[in-house]
Amino acid sequence: LDVDVLIAHGTGILPGDVPALRGGAGRTAVATAPKGYLKFGWGTTPVKELTAAGVAVGLATDGAASNNSLDVWESMT
């Protein structure tokens, strides 16, 4: 990746994708909203693999319809 990228969710990131996310000239980060994924039974973001590779991962909310709250602090519990 040649430019800075913020990936929303990252639930489709596969183990083979991680080296490409850490190896570009730009900075790559992923915003994950796990509470919404649990509500809908979606897959999860591979947070451990991403952080181990040096990719920044941030916590997000996906809106009240997805997790019943817009409060990111509440999502941490």
Rank of each mutant, 00 (worst) to 15 (best):
P19A: 15
V30W: 00
A20H: 11
V57Q: 03
G54M: 09
G43W: 12
M76F: 11
S75C: 02
V30K: 00
R22V: 10
W42H: 14
L70R: 15
D4Y: 04
D2I: 11
S69F: 01
V55T: 13
G41C: 10
A60F: 00
A53G: 12
A20M: 12
A31Y: 05
T32H: 02
L70I: 14
G63L: 00
A31H: 05
E49F: 15
L50Q: 08
K48G: 07
G16F: 04
A33D: 04
A60V: 00
V18N: 12
G16V: 06
L59M: 15
V3I: 14
W73V: 07
L70Q: 14
G43K: 14
R27G: 00
A33K: 01
G23F: 13
G41V: 08
A31M: 04
A25H: 11
G12Y: 13
T45W: 01
A65C: 02
T44M: 15
P34R: 02
T61M: 03
I13V: 06
P15F: 10
N68M: 06
A8W: 10
A33L: 08
T77C: 06
G12W: 15
A52Y: 14
S66G: 13
L14H: 04
T61E: 02
W42L: 10
P46M: 06
T45K: 04
R22L: 05
A31N: 06
N68H: 08
G16P: 02
G26M: 11
A65Q: 03
A56F: 15
T61C: 06
K39L: 08
E49S: 14
